[in-house]
Design a protein around this nucleic acid. Sequence first.
DNA 1: ACCGTCATGTAATCGGTTACATGATTCT
DNA 2: AGAATCATGTAACCGATTACATGACGGT
Lengths: 208, 208
Amino acid sequence: MVLYVPMLSTKRLSPTSYLVLGLLAREGPSTPYDLKRQVAATLGHFWSFPHALLYAEPPRLVELGLATETQELHGRRRRTFTITPAGDAAVQEWLRRPSQDSTELRDPGLLQLYFADLGSAETPRIITREQLAIHRAKLKAYEEQARVQRKSRDAAAPARLLEEWHGHSLRMGTLYERAAVAFWEEMASETGDDAAAPSDGRDEPLIA
Amino acid sequence: MVLYVPMLSTKRLSPTSYLVLGLLAREGPSTPYDLKRQVAATLGHFWSFPHALLYAEPPRLVELGLATETQELHGRRRRTFTITPAGDAAVQEWLRRPSQDSTELRDPGLLQLYFADLGSAETPRIITREQLAIHRAKLKAYEEQARVQRKSRDAAAPARLLEEWHGHSLRMGTLYERAAVAFWEEMASETGDDAAAPSDGRDEPLIA
DNA sequence: ACCGTCATGTAATCGGTTACATGATTCT
DNA sequence: AGAATCATGTAACCGATTACATGACGGT
């Protein structure tokens, strides 16, 4: 009869946990709303973390001893969370072992395309048009944001190194959207839809 | 006081619901295990549907009147599900309105990279190596599978059109992996890691 | 003073994940 | 005959999504 309890501290943390821990580590004490804004500006573009999640996760971390909570007594009664040494250690440990979990690519449009043969003759065209619009818009938004960031970076050079890491996720998002646009343009031409003329301005090559 | 109940039939179906409905519509009566195999061969490569889900979803559809269930009386007592006319209608309706939900790209490696500045100097290198290995392996597997499918398609031409739609998701997977490999190779060269020499054989251009 | 948007939070439900189990087949 | 793998299913927990609410703040 084995009663060995395998490390209470290793209470399996989720990606959400590490997201919050990481932000607390980098940005310092934060309210859930602070977290929300940070996420929205970067990873949130392609990995959605509903705000309710960012309100629910910190208390969990507190229970595990990875963070502490303080609450304003007056006014908005904001709850502010601070990472503990144990929390910092958890982040370090996590970064030491590269994740082996594979990427989840959950694309509702692709799901529809997969079943397009069940619909009418126009179904593929309908789906393709919508997806092209969506991905083109997103790509455009990314490239716009990249332009803005380059500007502000030239102005205020000090924060440079830090910003790099934020920029990376944006960059991966951009690469993904380029691939998606290429894919759906191909679909468009296969379905005989001539909305395939590429209209986006390219600044950077697909493979850099 | 409003008591209007807005269409019982439109009881919000999830992507999982449509996946199962679609498969039942295309493949005919199926057991959860049949579903599992179908999924594993295609979408499952980048959108994981744990098998327990595919056992749980059909009964839900039965409750909604979108499928029926029969069970073997002897032997394995398999449960087989069949789509109903209402189920078919739901699929058709779904295909008529192109999904506007945006793609979820949940990449644990990217999450780690995002926080790489919190780790040691080697952290970016460690992460990058792992991700490169993962994505290269996956890309290779996709391209291999594409080769196999081309072969068997030349042999048995009849099933051709149907197969096309399956092939598309594989194709999108391939494009995504190419983008990922390009991204991480760039990271590798930025971190001064010279594992960046592309070693994969390219059959098809990135933009076709 | 009012309105809209930003900010902040909670609750309930439900889907998804993990873990547990075991019956059939196939191969050695 | 035993081992390994395929096939098949259930159950419990918990995180994620949705919906509901409302307080603060800035502008007109």
